[in-house]
Write a protein that binds this DNA or RNA. Structure first.
Length: 317
DNA sequence: TAGGCCATCTGGTCCT
DNA sequence: AGGACCAGATGGCCTA
């Protein structure tokens, strides 16, 4: 990073000196930019035209708009503009990454040491919304493989294992159809459990397995709002909870709100269910308020290839 | 060493 | 003119 920042003086260096060629790569970009200029522009630079004046009496040899000569002053302005644009772009991307980080923190699993990639974060987020919508609309349980399969739809194998591990479903619910090829099964290592889940989707990036103590389980993330001590006691989560502003994880029709009084139903047997209920979202079995989403429902066959998802139809309408 | 992921630079396009 | 946004290019880092 610092090296890249130091490159911000690329043009200055490119224009003033040509030593320190160990940074030739970044430096090249400056020269590339110069090389991208018109011949006229290069010509004026080589000519050491110090004047702001853009007309020196030469007759244009071609038709069309005449290109301004690249005087030193123009070069300087160009450089300043480019440096500022780079800084803005960096800042913009940092903001984007911050937002992505916030998204990671409200995902069903969160690990500071085993961050989901950008693309996996977005996929999981989409699946998460989808799965929660199913819970609300159809009373589908958050327990069991159905919910997990929705979450893991199209995710890479390691990410699927990460999610499966985070859900802490018992092995009896985690071993899916026996006909699934063992060769495609991958294991995540949580103490006391070995989870295996075959993701139906994409190739597996080299994430590797994860340690349970590296995980920040999603349910504690929200429990921590109410009772963090219980979280540490019951789930032994060592990763500090998300301290930023909590965004209601689901607001499909805009009529959901986070409970303000901190009341909770922490005696529920399943963290996810209590998560919903503590948010006033109702449980998975029809308890609590019933919400009617304004989102049109689209069936997505569980075996539908990820690539063929009706992406625009699912959540964007 | 190849592949995945990422940060950054860059130029183009659109908008104000 | 300048900023926001975008996509392509590039190089670094990491892991299998």
């Amino acid at each position: 990073m610092s090296e890249m920042v130091s490159v911000h003086g690329w043009m200055e260096e490119a224009l003033s000196s040509q030593d320190e060629m160990n940074e030739s790569n970044q430096r090249e970009s400056a020269y590339d930019m110069l090389s991208g200029m018109s011949h006229e522009e290069h010509g004026s630079i080589d000519g050491e035209d110090d004047e702001e004046e853009e007309e020196d009496g030469e007759k244009p040899k071609k038709r069309g708009p005449k290109k301004k000569k690249m005087t030193k002053a123009r070069m300087e302005r160009f450089r300043v503009r480019r440096v500022k644009a780079n800084a803005r772009e960096r800042s913009r991307m940092h903001g984007l990454n911050d937002a992505l980080d916030n998204l990671r923190r409200v995902m069903p699993c969160y690990s500071k040491t085993q961050k989901l990639s950008k693309i996996e974060t977005l996929r999981l987020a989409r699946n998460y919304i989808w799965a929660l919508s199913e819970v609300l609309d159809r009373g589908q349980t958050t327990e069991g493989k159905g919910f997990l399969e929705m979450l893991c739809k199209g995710l890479s194998q390691p990410t699927s294992n990460l999610v499966a591990g985070c859900l802490q479903l018992g092995p009896q619910t985690m071993f899916f159809e026996k006909h699934e090829e063992k060769s495609h099964l991958c294991e995540s290592s949580l103490p006391g459990h070995t989870y295996s889940y075959q993701s139906p989707g994409l190739p597996s990036p080299p994430y590797g397995n994860i340690e349970a103590h590296h995980l920040h389980l999603k349910p504690p993330t929200f429990k921590s709002v109410v009772d963090s001590s219980m979280v540490n006691h019951t789930l032994n989560c060592t990763t500090p909870p998300y301290e930023g502003a909590l965004t209601p994880p689901l607001s499909i029709s805009g009529n959901f709100s986070l409970k303000q009084d901190g009341s909770s139903d922490m005696d529920k047997s399943y963290a996810f269910r209590s998560h919903y209920q503590s948010l006033g979202l109702g449980g998975s079995h029809g308890h609590g308020p019933h919400f009617q989403t304004a989102v049109p429902r689209y069936e997505i066959p569980i075996d539908m290839p990820y690539e063929t998802y009706p992406h625009h139809a699912i959540f964007s309408e």
